[in-house]
Design a protein around this nucleic acid. Sequence first.
DNA 1: GCAGATTGCCTAGCAGCGCTAGAATGTGCT
DNA 2: AGCACATTCTAGCGCTGCTAGGCAATCTGC
Lengths: 193, 193
Amino acid sequence: MTIETRRERERAQREQLIVTAARELAEAEGWEAVTTRRLAAEIEYSQPVLYSHFKGKGAIMTAVAVQGFEELAIEVRAARTAARGTREALAAVAAAYTDFAQKRPALYDAMFTQAVDLTFASPDGPAYLHDGFDELLQAVRPLAGDDDPGILTETFWAGLHGLAMLERSGRLPLEARDHRLDLLVSRFAPAAG
Amino acid sequence: MTIETRRERERAQREQLIVTAARELAEAEGWEAVTTRRLAAEIEYSQPVLYSHFKGKGAIMTAVAVQGFEELAIEVRAARTAARGTREALAAVAAAYTDFAQKRPALYDAMFTQAVDLTFASPDGPAYLHDGFDELLQAVRPLAGDDDPGILTETFWAGLHGLAMLERSGRLPLEARDHRLDLLVSRFAPAAG
DNA sequence: GCAGATTGCCTAGCAGCGCTAGAATGTGCT
DNA sequence: AGCACATTCTAGCGCTGCTAGGCAATCTGC
């Protein structure tokens, strides 16, 4: 019994090692540098070991993405709970979201560009997939008025995601970053305070 | 002289053939199906011919993306000029934009996900890169008020782009598509009419 | 009209990719 | 110690983007 549990524990550790290595390699050199051979060398095991843990490279990236969703939710929640007014909360949440995307581009990439096999937008899905959204929802709801809070949150989220993506790819100049964020927030929380 | 021009003409034709084949293949089967071998077979030439026209596969995708930017600008302009009021213009422009992204996913992908080597956000860049943006600007400007029209347009654009991306990847349910678009427009053009 | 120079194209191949089969190694039990 | 099982590694498959070098068709000057 104990011997089995030890093995499982070691396996779990190594699995985490793989995910961490993939993430760090991606954040350091981008996802194009994350090859199965490179990753195997990084964890000091041979290539096929990866496939005894994950179905393929995509599954590894998905695992990294899941980590990202969890951390994003945490950061957004921290920003929201620290803020006082409703408008401040929305602004704080928006800033936290875009900061996350900017500071962890590879992670954000895994979450929204690479791993497409994660089913979204269903409340019965895994928690990590809608925890972050729920945080946004908490911040948007007080400002919804007659509009559907959920759909309004989706729209606001899209604004954040669009800003993050366009800024990340150099499509939008970074100087006006805060300015754009401020405009977005002001459109969803018109009344100051 | 004439012999040179004929050669150049033939070269230009074949170059267009490559771009068209790449685009059609991508739209039919996705960009992952667009390999240099497959593309060469499609145009009935050998692989290295591609490299006598383009620096690499990325350059071919960029060429497709450029076509996309031109067509997007045309469609957005058509929608804008056909609309009457300022709010209607914004709504029309928004619908045209997201429709484009939804109906030509591979093309939109080439424009915003794949081809990153296109420099953006500078007025002195190539026309096709800011023509579409200028169309959005035309629609947004009357609604800017005290805000900077350019930056407000960037923000609105981000909203459209975010919606397009999240809907495309299944991150947002398609049922509420029009609803979200309506909410976004209403946040940027609050007064009805 | 025909040899020579030039241009353009294709065949073949390189290094690297994700992934897998089967050999080899190490581990725990009797 | 020797057996049986689990695990890991070596080697290789088919594919990718890309390139070198030989071959053939084309144009030029006589």
